[in-house]
């Protein structure tokens, strides 16, 4: 009788741990995906009609552009000439169809965006994209 009571009091811990571990693995895996490319502090402009991008070209160069004109790629700050060097080497690696994605703050003045575009164009990369938050659909 005593032994039986002990048995029923025990919580089924093993299965719970299994689930918790699975959850942890899930979060670890999803957290590490493309986190390094995106600058979280940038608030994108909103686009109501454009569809959300499911899958972009894996070669895409993502340029983060701040309100004050600061540029960074993968959170590494770059000057315009460094950006140019970077784009030139990207072009040498994978051809001139490499898309350049500009993720700029909604309040960025066009003069800053224009400078990045000019650099892209001067290196021969003409597939420039502007990131926006897809709010519609």
């Amino acid at each position: 009788m005593r032994k039986r009571e002990d048995d029923t009091l025990e919580t089924p811990i093993t299965s719970m741990i299994d689930i918790v571990f699975l959850l942890i693995i899930f979060f670890v895996v999803t957290a590490s995906v493309d986190k390094d490319v995106v600058d979280e502090s940038i608030m994108l402009a909103q686009a109501k009609n454009a569809p959300a991008v499911e899958q972009s070209d894996p070669r895409t160069v993502t340029v983060n552009l701040h309100k004050n004109g600061d540029i960074n790629i993968s959170l590494q700050p770059l000057s315009l000439s460094q950006l140019k060097q970077m784009l030139i080497s990207m072009r040498a690696q994978s051809g001139n169809s490499v898309p350049v994605l500009i993720r700029c703050d909604a309040d960025t003045q066009f003069r800053h965006i224009d400078r990045v575009m000019q650099v892209a164009a001067s290196t021969g990369l003409y597939r420039v994209r502007l990131a926006a938050e897809a709010t519609g659909m």
Binding site: A50, M117, R127, A132, E133, A134
Partner: peptide
Amino acid sequence: FIVTAREDIPEAHLAVNLPA
């Protein structure tokens, strides 16, 4: 991990064709 997981903002990529 739950706290640090960021919700995915759907992004749209608007093509800007620079005059080649």
